[in-house]
Structures are given as structure tokens and as C-alpha cells.
């Protein structure tokens, strides 16, 4: 092909060699999380609690306690999410105070996150996420960074399309004994394992 001459092809191959050299050599890795997405989640996630019919029963000392679970390497980004929530809701919501707690998955599996009403789970390996979700059990709503992780048993996530839409895992909610208000169900997409998100 005349347009891309041999010399350029040669350099592209050489560059690809550099690419190969920079390929991952480690198995456990930190995440490239989208800050703008975290900001959107910070805005809507604390209010998800009001969509639970029995949310008042789950509150400890009248506080909405949010537990953010992340891999050890993603703790700084989890703290950023907590900062966004605290900045947005410094005065609480509707008279309910908001508290945030950032915990690594390892620590959570050993000692849990007492009093939490919402659990926000950041990406990790499948096994560790499933383990954490099992441990959360019926304690509260499980919100995930990406709808992809609903398949591990999380309850709610967001889909960013023309409008921002919640995606709900009804089966997992039922298993956890959480009944959501019809308003949320009306405006949400329902998760189905056959549908790619």
C-alpha cells in the first residue's frame, strides 16, 4: 500500500514491541475508575435508601451509614467517592445525617461494616465480590460501580444513556428481603442475566 510506506510500517512494528514490553506482568491491579461516574453515583446513591420501604428500621441512631468497599489499591478513589458524598450531603438528607466509611474487601470480610444501610461496591475479583455480597446478606442495599457486577448478586446500579437509569436486580433484592417502592421500579431497567449491560 502506497499510502503507508515501509518505513512507517517498520516503526509501527517497533512501537508494538514496546507495547508488548509494557503489558501487564502482575495479577492484582488497581483500577482506572471514572471520577465523573463516581460523582454521579455520589449524588444518587445515598437517596436510594429512601426507595426501601423499611429503610427506617435499618437506620442506626437515625443515620444513613454508607459503607464503601474497595480493593486496597483503590482506597484513594473510594475516599474520593466518600468526599463527594460528604460534600454533597454535608447537611444530611431530609433530616437524616449521612456518614461514610471506606473499608477494604479484606477487612470487611474479617470484621464487616457495622450499622451500614447502603453498601457501595467497587470493582474487584469475582470471588471476593461474591464473598462480600454474601456477607452483607440482608443488612442493606448493595449499590455497584457498574451494572456488570449485578450478576454477582448486587442490587442496584446505574446505566448512563440518554437519561440516567437505575438497573435493578430483583432476584437479589428478593433474596435479601428488601422491597423497593414502585416509583423506583417504574423508572428502572430490570437486570436479567441474559442481557449484556
Amino acid at each position: 500500500m502506497q499510502i503507508i510506506n515501509h518505513k512507517i510500517c517498520h516503526k509501527i512494528w517497533l512501537s508494538l514491541l514496546f507495547f508488548c514490553l509494557s503489558l501487564p506482568v502482575s495479577s492484582g491491579n488497581a483500577s482506572l475508575l471514572r471520577q465523573d461516574l463516581l460523582r454521579i453515583h455520589a449524588s444518587i446513591m445515598p437517596k436510594t435508601v429512601f426507595m426501601d420501604y423499611d429503610f427506617k428500621k435499618r437506620l442506626v441512631n437515625g443515620k444513613i451509614a454508607i459503607c464503601i468497599l474497595s480493593k486496597q489499591n483503590d482506597i484513594p478513589q473510594a475516599r474520593e467517592l466518600a468526599r463527594y458524598i460528604n460534600k454533597l450531603y454535608s447537611n444530611g438528607i431530609n433530616g437524616f445525617k449521612i456518614t461514610t466509611n471506606v473499608v477494604s474487601y479484606q477487612k470487611f470480610i474479617k470484621s464487616s461494616c457495622p450499622g451500614a444501610t447502603i453498601f457501595y461496591i467497587l470493582p474487584a475479583g469475582r470471588h471476593i465480590m461474591e464473598q462480600a455480597i454474601n456477607k452483607i446478606g440482608k443488612s442493606g442495599i448493595i449499590f455497584t460501580y457498574s451494572p456488570r457486577y449485578l450478576k454477582y448478586g448486587a442490587h442496584v446500579s446505574l446505566k448512563i444513556k440518554y437519561r440516567v437509569k437505575p438497573v435493578i436486580n430483583l432476584k437479589a433484592l428478593k433474596k435479601s428481603g428488601i422491597s423497593l417502592r414502585p416509583a423506583l421500579l417504574r423508572i428502572s431497567d430490570l437486570y436479567s442475566p441474559d442481557r449484556k449491560l
Binding site: S22, L23, P24, S26, N29, A30, S31, L32, N73
Partner: peptide, 8 residues
């Protein structure tokens, strides 16, 4: 191409 290793 961006890759983040576990040690930051």
C-alpha cells in the same frame, strides 16, 4: 494503552 499495577 494504560495499565495500573497493584503497587500503584
Amino acid at each position: 494503552f494504560l495499565h495500573t499495577f497493584d503497587f500503584g
